[in-house]
Design a protein around this nucleic acid. Structure first.
Length: 275
DNA sequence: GCCCAGGGGTTAG
DNA sequence: CTAACCCATGGG
């Protein structure tokens, strides 16, 4: 076990805001990251970690090197964001593994967080490797590429199952260079990700933000559309329904600036908690 | 039985 | 071009 000194970090907000799907809270938080079990607990400014993952990796995973005060001052454009920064201070984005993030968000379409978590857990139990008693790694592309569609039924993914198998084959066969996206701009990466079946603008934005650290990404789902409508609705009142989410994202990028991805997560948390 | 969920693909107008 | 509908599953 080791300890990381933090400031402006809140483990509970960071892990419960809906960006990650494989962490569970008991007395400690327990997650599976990079094929390792990791346990985490916050103690004031101390972040206690029990894991084979080293300190540098964990700091990077929780983005503890982000200059969060500067990010706050950049996105703090009005009373609403000011209050959300106070309320959820310490909520950090997480640097997720691209493959796990991509598959997880393909599973998220028209789904609830609870169902997404359950499906991913089943998928890991069926096709991942047991790394500790009862804990399974996220299945690699090569593993999922060999799975037959009929064996996916037990994961209860519904219409998303064939999309997961298809992208697994594409990544395993190097037909799609997922890891090359980290060297692309936000726009290029978005165009590339949207070539994948089951990945539209919103899911591409989630992968770009949560896995590739493109902080100018602003994913607009039903919750973000709702809260943006209620606070900034006059800016896109007359926009066509089919273009609305894109327009909201463009507005947010201009309004909150290059760190709008952080703003998005605070807005999401608010709509998520109010619900 | 209805509507909705961290949407996206397809079709009909 | 746009809106409407469909997708499979679980819960309110």
């Amino acid at each position: 076990m080791y300890r990381i000194d933090t400031n402006d970090f809140d483990l509970d907000y960071t892990l419960s805001c809906g960006q990650v799907f494989r962490w569970e809270k008991d007395d400690w938080w327990t997650g599976i990251v990079r094929g390792s079990v990791i346990r985490a607990k916050q103690n004031g400014n101390g972040l206690l970690i029990e894991s084979k993952l080293d300190k540098n990796f964990v700091q990077d995973y929780f983005r503890l090197d982000d200059d969060i005060e500067r990010i706050y001052s950049e996105i703090n454009k009005d009373k609403l964001m000011d209050s959300l920064i106070q309320k959820y201070r310490g909520l950090r984005l997480i640097r997720q593994d691209p493959w796990e993030c991509l598959v997880s968000y393909i599973c998220s379409s028209n789904n609830t967080i609870r169902n997404i978590k359950n499906s991913i857990k089943r998928m890991c139990g069926c096709f991942g490797e047991e790394i500790e008693r009862g804990y399974y790694s996220f299945p690699a592309p090569e593993a999922l590429a060999q799975v037959h569609i009929s064996d996916m039924a037990q994961c209860r993914l519904g219409f998303r199952a064939p999309r997961v198998l298809k992208v697994a084959s594409m990544v395993a066969n190097r037909e799609f260079d997922l890891y090359g996206i980290k060297d692309m701009s936000y726009r290029e990466g978005r165009r590339e990700l949207m070539k994948i079946e089951g990945v539209g603008g919103k899911i591409a934005d989630c992968v770009l933000l949560f896995a590739f650290g493109k902080l100018e990404s602003f994913p607009v789902d039903t919750h973000i559309e709702h809260i943006m409508d209620s606070f900034y609705g006059e800016h896109f009142k007359n926009v066509k329904k089919s273009k609305k989410r894109e327009e909201i994202a463009e507005f947010a990028r201009g309004y909150f600036g290059g760190y709008c991805g952080y703003a998005q997560e605070y807005l999401y948390m608010e709509d998520f908690e109010v619900k």
